[in-house]
């Protein structure tokens, strides 16, 4: 439970969209990508609310049959935040409302979401992982903004 941040090497990851990008779970690899099984529904839900695109066309999904909700890996770049300072808040809000709609009638699950923050100029890349309940996503928002300020 909580937030972990670590610097990673993923130079090949480049944003190809004006919004957030959904990355494969094995984004550190350069091919044979597989996406979280939750990614497609999340994408369909999110695309009406914010600019979002897949990093590549998903063909293979990674399914983890746990009650925990393993959300998609989300790429946010510093240039995206410069263009749209509200993007972090919007993204966390979309995840939160998706969870409310998706789990209507069910027990609220634990949530596991990874955000990859990439500094566009320096290419410094940080993986921010949130594990907790769906109501505390403000902590994820805060953690992304902290990394973005540095």
């Amino acid at each position: 439970m909580g937030i972990t941040k670590k610097e990673i090497r993923a130079k090949h990851i480049q944003s190809k969209t004006d919004g957030i990008a959904l990355l494969p779970v094995n984004y550190k690899d350069e091919d044979n990508y597989k996406y979280q099984s939750t990614s497609l529904s999340f994408f369909k839900y999110a695309k009406d609310k914010t600019e979002v695109a897949f990093y590549t066309d998903p063909e293979v999904l990674y399914e983890q049959r746990s009650v925990e909700w393993f959300g998609p890996v989300i790429l946010i770049t510093s240039s995206l935040i410069s263009q749209n300072p509200e993007i972090v808040s919007i993204t966390c809000g979309v995840i939160s409302s998706y969870l409310t709609d998706f789990f209507k009638g069910q027990k609220k699950p634990k949530v596991s979401v990874k955000v990859i923050y990439k500094e566009t100029e320096t290419e410094k890349t940080t993986e921010i992982e949130y594990q907790g309940n769906g109501e505390d996503l403000s902590k994820l928002q805060q953690a992304i903004l902290e990394v973005a300020k540095k």
């Binding site: 597989k34 099984s37 497609l40 066309d57 998903p58 063909e59 293979v60 999904l61 990674y62 399914e63 983890q64 049959r65 746990s66």
Partner: peptide, 20 residues
């Protein structure tokens, strides 16, 4: 038990198209 595996996208149970 909670297995993890890779799988194909599959079809939509509503419209029967590729779920993607």
């Amino acid at each position: 038990n909670s297995p993890g595996h890779t799988e194909t996208i599959g079809k939509c149970s509503i419209c029967h198209k590729n779920f993607a």
